[in-house]
């Protein structure tokens, strides 16, 4: 029985044997999409105070939010969609305050809405650092 075989709904291992589990692991990744983020100036009134710490529980919720809700437009792997790709290499040159500002305030004229209704400033910055791989 292949290790990845999924059995559910109380099926026994024997009867579920027809379930073909296919990994497709060797499929070649296509050439990386170049980042196309244009860079409006970072607003002057970016918060400079140290952000309040984000609890461990909240961090889990934020990771879920990033994957699933941000992922709806930016891709579950953040490889891009209607929104631009946000993987490490694409955000490496985007400072945390710029990313946090964009997350919280959106980008007028695009499909990126302001998320400040759901996130505190500290959480916006936590997400920005998460994108850059800077969270512990």
């Amino acid at each position: 029985m292949p290790s990845g075989l999924n059995i559910f709904l109380g099926w026994t291992a024997g009867t579920a044997g027809w379930l073909a589990v296919l990994s497709g692991a060797s499929l070649a990744a296509l050439a990386a999409v170049p980042p196309v983020l244009d860079s409006p100036p970072v607003p002057a009134e970016v918060a400079v105070t140290a952000p309040a710490p984000v609890s461990r529980e909240r961090a889990l919720a934020l990771r879920h939010f990033l994957t699933q809700d941000c992922g709806s437009c930016h891709g579950l792997t953040l490889g891009g969609g209607l929104g631009p790709p946000l993987q490490r290499e694409q955000v490496a040159n985007k400072p945390v305050p710029y990313l946090a500002y964009t997350i919280l305030n959106g980008r007028p004229g695009t499909a990126m809405p302001p998320w400040s209704r759901f996130l505190t400033e500290a959480e916006g910055e936590w997400l920005a650092r998460e994108l850059r791989g800077e969270n512990p």
Binding site: G4, N6, F8, A16, W18, L19, A20, V21, L22, S23, G24, A25, L27, G71, S72, G75, L76, T77, G79, G81
Partner: peptide
């Protein structure tokens, strides 16, 4: 049943 290995299935 379940069929796996379809990549990034967001949207």
């Amino acid at each position: 049943g379940r069929i796996e290995g379809l990549g990034d299935l967001s949207h």
